[in-house]
Write a protein that binds this DNA or RNA. Structure first.
Length: 428
DNA sequence: TCTGGGGTCCTAGGACCC
DNA sequence: TCTGGGGTCCTAGGACCC
């Protein structure tokens, strides 16, 4: 087996949100724990004990209510402030082990471990795992291989098979050993293969990762685009997905939410769209972008038999802007275009696209006085909201009572408390 | 009663230009 | 009968990820 490529490890937090809840409530150790999505709708994270009683990721809470009651499962609304803070601590710890860390998601990072011998590599990753557990209290699994896709497979095995103790290193092992792991990996568990491709692949007798690694290049490209071909190459040990340690700017920013109840009036739709537009605009300004386009969308509940309507409208802005005031006014026009009376709306959202960098020095060159004034208002709001909390200043058009707001009935008081404390620490 | 949110990339096809 | 060809830009839609 060639060892021309530096080893890449993927560190993945086990059952991340559920583990976070446990960090601050040790009584939950050994107990079944689930964490719900926004609006307390579906299950997005589960402890192993919860998996063992038959609850699955993505299950709507109401459909597994009987299991929750029977096994006294601990249920939590999600607390993203808490999870974000713990994630940050995990990532900071990983950065002490490698100069080259790519934070891939809230609970997962790729790290490049150049210069290690195979044996030391395994020991080193066990050390990473032990330190993260000891310092932060989060259990992680580590997979090490020649490519990201192979390291994800190793990681999965490390998590599932207890004899590996959370770390599996298939970097520099014989091809026979790699093939054995590939054969035991269902094709649906390969990174980059989702539900649709699984169906297609199985129909064509490609059932596991090994079959996929041996598939015909041309057929793969025709049926799964170059993305699929990249996956196949990666399974063969040829890196096609590089490690990106710099965080790129976002190309789209979305803020959308299901309502806590049905909404029928245009007034309330406008309140929510106004609120989501300002949230999205805040996120956009934090990366110093201005947008040229704004999409507003709304929809009824697709799971219901009530009359269905979903629609969206793309609004072109006359010149790129980062002003909340201006964006809200265009978003309101968007609502006017697509809103229809007589429907029970379940969700709305706003998407910002067509970003350009904001050059503050240009401000005023082509702008009217109004525009300069708006920029100052926006800047002041951002500053105060950062300093005193995100709800300090907001546009009255986004509603005061917001009775349509998201449900979140099962946040544990301890974690809410911790969330606030974390935020304070971060600010200093 | 009760079904999340926020992103990425690729491709096909239409509009438009010379 | 036969109605260019090539390039670019944009958008919608479909696949994927966590």
């Amino acid at each position: 087996m060639s060892q021309n490529n530096p080893p890449v490890a993927v560190v993945d937090c086990n059952n991340f949100y559920a583990s976070c809840e446990r960090v601050f409530n040790p009584k939950l150790q050994g107990q079944p724990v689930v964490v719900l999505s926004n609006n307390d709708g579906i299950i997005v994270a589960l402890s192993n004990e919860a998996k063992a009683v038959g609850i699955k990721m993505g299950d709507p809470l109401f459909k597994v209510k009987h299991l929750v009651e029977k096994y006294q499962v601990n249920v939590f609304s999600s607390n993203y402030v808490l999870y974000g803070d713990i994630s940050h601590r995990v990532m900071t710890t990983l950065e002490q082990f490698s100069p080259n860390v790519e934070i891939y998601s809230i609970d997962e990072a790729f790290i490049s471990l150049d210069g290690f011998k195979r044996k030391n590599l395994t020991e080193y990753c066990h050390e990473i795992r032990d330190i993260v557990k000891k310092w932060i209290g989060i259990p992680v699994s580590v997979g090490i291989a020649e490519t990201k896709t192979l390291s994800k497979i190793a990681n999965r095995v490390a998590k599932k098979v207890s004899k590996y103790n959370g770390v599996l290193n298939i970097y520099g092992v014989s091809q026979d050993i790699i093939d054995e792991h590939l054969r035991l990996t269902d094709v649906s568990d390969v990174w980059g293969v989702g539900r649709q491709y699984t169906k297609l692949l199985k129909k064509n007798n490609i059932n596991n990762a090994y079959d996929l690694s041996k598939a015909n290049d041309k057929w793969i490209k025709n049926n799964m685009t170059v993305m699929g071909l990249r996956t196949v190459y990666e399974l063969r040990g040829i890196p096609c997905v590089s490690l990106e340690s710099a965080v790129p700017d976002k190309k789209a920013i979305i803020c959308s939410r299901s309502f806590g109840r049905y909404v029928e009036t245009k007034e309330e739709i406008k309140e929510s769209v106004s609120l989501f537009t300002s949230r999205a605009a805040e996120k956009m300004r934090s990366q110093n972008s201005a947008c040229r386009m704004l999409t507003v969308f709304l929809r009824t509940n697709p799971f219901k038999k009530t009359p269905q309507y979903h629609n969206g409208v793309l609004v072109q802005l006359p010149i790129p802007t980062d002003s909340t005031t201006e964006m809200v006014s265009y978003a309101m026009k968007g609502v006017d275009q697509i809103f229809r009376t007589g429907y029970l709306y379940n969700k709305v959202g706003v998407m910002l696209t067509g970003f350009e960098p904001v050059d503050r020095s240009q401000l005023g060159l082509f702008d009217t006085e109004d525009r300069i004034k708006m920029a100052k208002v926006t800047e002041t709001m951002d500053r105060l909201n950062l300093e005193f909390g995100s709800r300090t200043l907001f546009y009255a058009s986004s509603g005061i009572r917001r009775s349509w707001g998201t449900k979140s009935d099962m946040k544990s008081p301890q974690t809410q408390q911790t969330g606030r404390i974390c935020l304070r620490l971060v600010r200093k």
